[in-house]
Design a binder for these strands. Structure first.
Lengths: 343, 343
DNA sequence: AGTTCGTGGGAGAGCGCTCTCCCATACCGA
DNA sequence: TCGGTATGGGAGAGCGCTCTCCCACGAACT
C-alpha cells in the first residue's frame, strides 16, 4: 500500500504520455492546456497517487505557502506568563478564527511563542530560512521588535492590536474606547452613580483606551471623577484591585473591569465582603470569554468579535502575500454589549 | 539592510575560500573539519548573515524538521465543537507542553483541526507533501482513521489518550481508573455515603475508566451501587446531569464529575436547588483546569499532568523520527488529588 | 501563396542544498 | 624505500519541481 518512493512529476508525465512541464501546468492551472490532455493528466495523477513535493516547489518559487502565528507573550519574560496565555480562552478564540480562515487555502499555521529576545532571534531565523511567508502577531503588549525584524527578512506581518508607535505594519483592532463608553452608558442607564474601574496594564494602548472611554462615558452622564485601580488582566489582579477599591470607596455601586477574568475576581471579592451582585454592585467585564458565560452570576460584558478579527488578520496577510504593495492597512471592529446577570 | 538575494552556501564558500561541501560540513557538524577552517567558515557565515534554506535542505534530506499537532475534535462533526475545544484550558495546557518541548529543537508545530473526513484527507496530503515529519494527535475521541492514514504515507504519530482498539501507534495517557478510585476514596474519607457520578461520553475509553475506578473505589468502601448520569464533558451537560440526578437521588451527598467543567455546572445546579457545596454535597472534578482553580467554591479535583504528558508525547515522536524502529510505546501518568473547597 | 499571428506543447536550465566519490597529504610499520 | 591507512578537502551529481525559451502547427490576414 505504501509506495515508499513517492511518485514524482516525471512519473505522472510518463504515465500521461506528456512532458513534465505540461503536468505542472495542469496542476497549477498556470497556462492553457487542451481539455483532453488535462483529463489525461488528471487521470495519471489519480492513478499514481501523485502529490507535489513542497520542498521542491518552494525551492524554485521561494514561497512556502505557510504562515506563522507568533504569540508574543510579554516583556516580563516570566516563562509562566506566555504559557498561561495559551490557556486563556481569548487566545483560543483567536486561534479558532485563524485556523478557520486559513483552512480554505490548505494552510496550517505554525505556532510560536516569543517570550524573550532569544526567541525573537530564533523566530526571525525561522522565517528567514523560508519556513513561512508571513506572520500573524498576537500580542496584547506593545511589542515592537518582531515586526521590524521580520520586515528586515522580507516577511510581512499583521498584528492583533494597534502597536504602541505607528510602524510599517498592518493591524486589526477593536474600538476599545467605544467599548468603555458602552460600559459606562449601561451602568448609568441602570441607575448606578458611584462607579469605579479596574483597568488593564496601562502601558497597553487597549487598556488605556477602554479606561478613557469609560471615564468619557461617565463624564457625559454627570460623573466627572472615577476611582480607578490598575490590574493585570488576570483573575488574581481583579480580586486584589476590588479589595483595594472597596477600602477606598466603600459606597461604590458599579465596577467596570477591563477583562472578564478580572471581573470574575472582582465579583468573588465583592461576595467575600458581603456585597451582592448585581443588587448592591453592578459589574461589567470585557471580552465575552468563557468565564463570563459560565460563572455565577453570568457576567455582563463587552464582546470582542475575536473570531471575525482573526479572520480579518488572515485576509490582510494573504492579500499582502499575494500582492506585496507597501501600504499597511488597519481594520477596527465594533464592540458589542452582552447582557447577563452581573449588571 | 535587507539583502534581498539571500546569501547561499556558495557565497559563504567563496568568502571563506573553501568549497561548498566544507561549509556544509561545518554547519551540520557532519564530518571532521580542521579547527582553523571551521573558524574561517564560521566567520564567513557571520559576515554574510547566511542562513540555510530549508526547502533546499529538505529536498535532499527528505526531512522537513517540522511536526504537526492534529486536534481531532469529534465524530459528531458539528463545526463548533472543535472550535470550542481550542478554547478549553485542557487544550491550552497540552499545547504549552508541546511547544515548550519542541523549542530546544527549533521546531514550531503546525496546528490542524480534523473535524471530518475531508479534513483527514487534507491533513494526510499535507504530511505526504513533506510539510511535516510526524504528528502529535490530540483527540479525546477514539478516532482511528488518522494514525493509519499517516502511517500509510510514512509519517509516525503519537496519540494523546489510548486508542479504542490497539493499533500501531504510540500514546501517552493517564491512569484514569486510578483517578476514579482516588475520587471515591476521598469522598468516603470525608464521611460521604450516598455518591453519584456524572461521567464523560461513555464511548471514550477514558470516561469508562474513570467511572470504573470510581465504582470500584466505592465498592471497596461498602457502597456497591452508584447512580450515574452520562454527560459530554461540557459545562451545560454537567448542569443538566446534576439536575437529573437530584431528581432521581434527592438525598445524594457526593458527586464525582469526570471533568472540571461538568463539576462547575453541577455545583451551580446544586446551588439552584438550595444545596450547599461542600456542606450538603461534596463535589470532585477531573483535570485541574482553570475553572477548578478560579470558580467559587474552588473545585477539589483529580489533576492530569498535561504539560508533562505533552512533553512526553514530543519525546516519543522525536525518538521515533530519529530512529524509526517499529515498536510503538506507551507511557501512563499518575493522577494527583488536588484539594480545594468543594470536597 | 506567403506572412503573421496565437495557441499549446516540449526541452532544459537551475533553485540551494547534501552526499557520495575521489584525491592529496601525512603518518605509520615493515 | 615502499605500500597501507587515516585524515581532511574538493568535484559534481542530483533531489523534484517551475519557468523561460523555443518550436510546431493551424488560422487569419494580405
Amino acid at each position: 500500500m505504501s509506495a515508499d518512493p513517492s511518485p514524482t512529476l516525471e512519473d505522472v508525465a510518463r504515465v500521461a504520455g506528456v512532458s513534465r512541464a505540461t503536468v505542472s501546468r495542469v496542476i497549477n492551472r498556470t497556462r492553457n492546456v487542451a481539455p483532453e490532455i488535462q483529463e489525461v493528466v488528471r487521470r495519471a495523477v489519480e492513478a499514481t497517487g501523485y502529490v507535489p513535493n513542497r520542498a521542491a516547489r518552494s525551492l524554485v518559487t521561494r514561497r512556502s505557502e505557510a504562515v506563522g502565528v507568533v504569540v508574543a507573550g510579554t516583556d516580563l519574560s516570566d516563562s509562566l506568563n506566555a504559557g498561561q496565555f495559551l490557556t486563556d480562552p481569548f487566545f483560543g478564540r483567536l486561534l479558532t478564527g485563524i485556523i478557520g480562515a486559513l483552512k480554505p487555502r490548505g494552510i496550517f499555521p505554525a505556532l510560536m511563542l516569543a517570550e524573550n529576545a532569544a526567541d525573537d532571534l530564533a523566530i526571525t531565523a525561522y522565517f528567514k530560512q523560508g519556513n513561512a511567508d508571513g506572520a500573524l502577531l498576537i500580542s496584547t503588549y506593545p511589542d515592537e521588535r518582531l515586526p521590524a525584524m521580520l520586515a528586515d527578512v522580507g516577511r510581512p506581518s499583521v498584528r492583533f492590536a494597534r502597536p504602541a508607535s505607528p510602524g510599517p505594519v498592518s493591524y486589526v483592532d477593536l474600538a476599545h474606547r467605544e467599548g468603555g463608553r458602552m460600559a459606562a452608558a449601561h451602568l448609568a442607564s441602570i441607575g448606578r452613580r458611584r462607579p469605579v474601574a479596574i483597568t488593564g496594564p496601562l502601558e497597553i494602548p487597549a487598556a488605556q483606551e477602554r479606561q478613557a472611554g469609560y471615564e468619557e462615558g461617565w463624564a457625559r452622564h454627570g460623573c466627572p471623577f472615577v476611582p480607578v485601580c490598575e490590574g493585570g488582566f488576570t483573575y488574581d489582579s481583579g480580586e486584589r484591585a476590588m479589595k483595594e477599591l472597596l477600602d477606598r470607596v466603600p459606597d461604590l455601586d458599579a465596577v467596570f473591569a477591563a477583562s472578564d477574568l478580572m471581573a470574575q475576581g472582582a465579583i468573588h471579592a465583592l461576595g467575600d465582603h458581603g456585597r451582592r451582585v448585581p443588587e448592591d454592585v453592578a459589574v461589567v467585564g470585557f471580552d465575552d470569554s468563557a468565564p463570563a458565560r459560565l460563572s455565577r452570576p453570568g457576567i455582563t460584558t463587552i464582546r470582542q468579535p475575536l473570531e471575525e478579527m482573526a479572520a480579518e488578520m488572515v485576509r490582510l496577510l494573504l492579500d499582502r502575500l499575494d500582492d506585496p504593495s507597501p501600504e499597511p492597512t488597519s481594520v477596527i471592529f465594533d464592540p458589542v454589549l452582552v447582557l447577563r446577570e452581573s449588571a
